[in-house]
Simulated scan of single mutants.
Amino acid sequence: MGVRLVFLGRLADLVGADSREVAPGALPAVLGGLPDGLLGPRVKLALNGMLVGAEGLMLAEGDELAFLPPVSGG
Rank of each mutant, 00 (worst) to 15 (best):
M1Y: 10
G2D: 09
G2H: 02
V3T: 03
R4E: 15
R4I: 05
R4A: 01
L5R: 15
L5I: 11
F7N: 05
G9W: 08
A12S: 15
L14H: 12
V15W: 11
V15H: 06
V15S: 12
V15R: 10
G16L: 05
A17Y: 03
A17D: 11
D18E: 12
S19H: 10
R20V: 07
R20L: 15
E21T: 12
E21M: 12
E21F: 08
V22I: 03
V22G: 00
A23R: 08
A23D: 10
P24A: 06
G25N: 09
G25D: 08
G25K: 05
A26L: 10
L27M: 07
P28V: 02
P28C: 05
P28S: 01
P28E: 05
V30I: 06
V30T: 10
L31F: 02
G32T: 14
G32H: 11
G33M: 05
G33H: 07
G33Y: 08
L34K: 06
L34S: 12
L34M: 13
L34W: 09
P35E: 13
D36R: 15
G37R: 14
G37M: 15
L39F: 10
G40C: 07
G40M: 10
P41G: 09
P41H: 07
P41I: 09
R42M: 07
V43Y: 11
V43D: 13
K44W: 11
K44R: 14
L45W: 13
L45C: 01
A46W: 05
A46K: 14
A46N: 01
A46S: 13
L47E: 11
L47G: 03
L47Q: 06
L47A: 05
L47S: 03
N48A: 11
N48G: 13
N48H: 10
G49E: 15
G49P: 11
M50W: 03
L51T: 11
V52R: 04
V52L: 03
V52Q: 03
V52W: 00
A54D: 11
A54F: 11
E55C: 03
E55R: 13
E55S: 07
E55M: 04
E55P: 01
G56K: 00
G56E: 02
G56L: 02
G56V: 04
G56A: 03
L57C: 04
L57I: 02
L59E: 00
L59H: 02
L59Q: 00
A60D: 09
A60T: 14
E61F: 01
E64I: 12
L65T: 08
L65D: 09
L65V: 11
L65S: 12
A66D: 06
F67V: 09
F67A: 01
P69H: 08
P70R: 06
P70Q: 13
P70C: 12
V71C: 00
V71S: 02
S72W: 00
S72V: 01
G73Q: 01
G73T: 00
G73L: 03
G73A: 07
G74M: 00
